[in-house]
Amino acid sequence: MICQECQTRQATLHFTKIINGKKAEMHLCDECARDKGEQIPGSNSYSIHELLSGLLNVDQISGNNEFKTSRAEPEPLVCDQCGLTYERFAKVGRFGCAHCYKAFDAKLDPILNRVHSGNDRHAGKVPKRTGGTMQVQREIEKLRESLRTSIEQEEFEEAARLRDQIRELEGKIQNGEEEA
């Protein structure tokens, strides 16, 4: 999502503000949030890191432009399968179990991007037995891509061939699910 102030940078801070009894959603980038911060009474005591670390709730207490800021107690991120906290993961640099990847999912993209030269999605092998229909779905995605290109280039015979192939694979997935 793009920052609603500058309309250029990525919005990193999302919160709801109530002005004159009306709810307004705010999506700001770091810099605009810092600028805006001065306009939100009572928010000066918060560093930008604190702003980013949690959701900032701004509640109206009285009258026009009078605000009180309160921050929800930051919930410690923890894997409910193995009990590893995000804090400890960040320290040790090791996950506790497979489920940690789900539990810390929201925070993993930047870490994985840094480690794997800008990648955070798997593009390799899928286990045969437990990978389910994923292999076929990937195949379908690839074929759809080719279908788009061949339509753009008005290669209709090729497009028809690709469309049939896609239908066949989609049929396979449906049959597979019925069997399962």
Binding site: F95, A98, Y101, P127
Partner: peptide, 29 residues
């Protein structure tokens, strides 16, 4: 070798992140 092993034991695998490993530097493949 991996396929043979996968028939016998159930791997920690995730569509989004691939084969899940202890260290984030090995995840994916």
């Amino acid at each position: 070798l991996d396929d043979c092993a996968e028939e016998k034991v159930t791997y920690a695998f995730d569509e989004k992140r691939g084969y899940l490993t202890s260290c984030p530097t090995n995840v994916g493949t």
